[in-house]
Design a protein around this nucleic acid. Sequence first.
DNA 1: CGCCTGGTTGAGAATCATCAACATCTGTGG
DNA 2: CCACAGATGTTGATGATTCTCAACCAGGCG
Lengths: 246, 246
Amino acid sequence: MSIDKSTADSGCPHNSHISCGNCRLGTICLPLALENEEVVKLEEIVQRGRPLQKGEHVYREHDQFTAVFAVRSGSFKAYKLTDSGKEQVTGFYFPGEVFGMDGISKDIYTNSAKALETSAVCEIPFNHLEQLSVQIPTMQRHFFQLMSQEITEDQQLITLLSKNTAEERIAALLLSVSARNARRQLSATCFRLPMSRADIGNYMGITVETVSRVFTRFAKLGLIEVDSKEVNLLNIDGLKESANIT
Amino acid sequence: MSIDKSTADSGCPHNSHISCGNCRLGTICLPLALENEEVVKLEEIVQRGRPLQKGEHVYREHDQFTAVFAVRSGSFKAYKLTDSGKEQVTGFYFPGEVFGMDGISKDIYTNSAKALETSAVCEIPFNHLEQLSVQIPTMQRHFFQLMSQEITEDQQLITLLSKNTAEERIAALLLSVSARNARRQLSATCFRLPMSRADIGNYMGITVETVSRVFTRFAKLGLIEVDSKEVNLLNIDGLKESANIT
DNA sequence: CGCCTGGTTGAGAATCATCAACATCTGTGG
DNA sequence: CCACAGATGTTGATGATTCTCAACCAGGCG
């Protein structure tokens, strides 16, 4: 909100000409143990794209798979259309996180990815990444890990959807966003949810109405404060109890 | 059921001394475009394990991650325990399919894997596989694809859990097992479900009772025949309609 | 200013979970 | 070979959570 692009220092990911080496998101999206000269090789293949407007697509379902993407600023949602034409949100991505890996298996993206707000991505062409992975084993390992992490997270969501109530799901989502914010040195308690209530409900397998009701219920219990998209987690431990996570 | 191990030919995956080169599951778990000499390299690192009895574990949640596994014969389920101690089934694996990739990200398995019946696996030590991937780009690509496929499948399950009714979920499961059977040149209509009703319900996010009811409902509609674990899909198109897949 | 999208709230309906009883299957030991 | 116990599966009755439908409210934008 209050980020002033004109005075953005080299650590600000909005700035499109800074390099991986001094991007402050590096610790999230890069392998930690990368040599300087290896970072240079990586930088050669990474394409820092122009900003995307809210609603713009990075790629669409069934597009030819060419690259994976790291969120530079803003946020994205991945979704697919079911056979009956309904949307299914499969994930939200915040700065430093990598998406697009679903496309590898069939050489075609199985999801669409669109910006939830004005955002920017780094594009990492996959054929180059493969070559680089052969040269730099650390890179290969890191990328295996990123994919494995996606699997783990999807499985957590599966558990959530298959076992938990609406309240537990919402609590888990809030805690997830909170934790991911903390990883970027941002507030773990006070933040803006970039996605709509409909997206939340869709992602969590509940209706908008239920999302809305749970939010107000949480607010009445003093667990959170809500002002449209802005939320303030007043009682994280209470939320964790509601999420059934200890 | 009627497999006679004593007369098992070299193509039978029960036979523990056959190699990847002439394993009839090769087309499923191996990259197609592998040179002969490359297959030899792969065979050097693959460990063909002893049979596992029903209920035996391949690995347990929180174990040190060492290897991924290809199902040689039988079937497995992957599951994890939730914080509240309940079980969550995260996948079923049939011959030719690879599991254990969830462990890569943290170097620790995030699931347990146990045999649903007498089964056998090929163990592929991951450090060797990484080295091999550097030598054989096709291998790297193939492994990326396997992981990406796991992501895609998990996301399909997410959609199922988040949007579909009990009937649709069961229909989808039956069709999934059917398709995976067909891939192994087995009957797409008549097969045995190796997992319990409880496992099915757990995986699909519904209770055993509901599973049972849906099975009998499907049977009454003439869509399937059920005799305990044996099922016969009488009307695949009808099932696809029930699953909302066209 | 009014329209449209997105969000909230309410009332009734439906699916599925829960609880409970009963049936069946499996394997074990007499 | 049979009897029995425990696990697994089926069926029924009841109830709760969540969905659906509907009205209404708030904010952004032409």
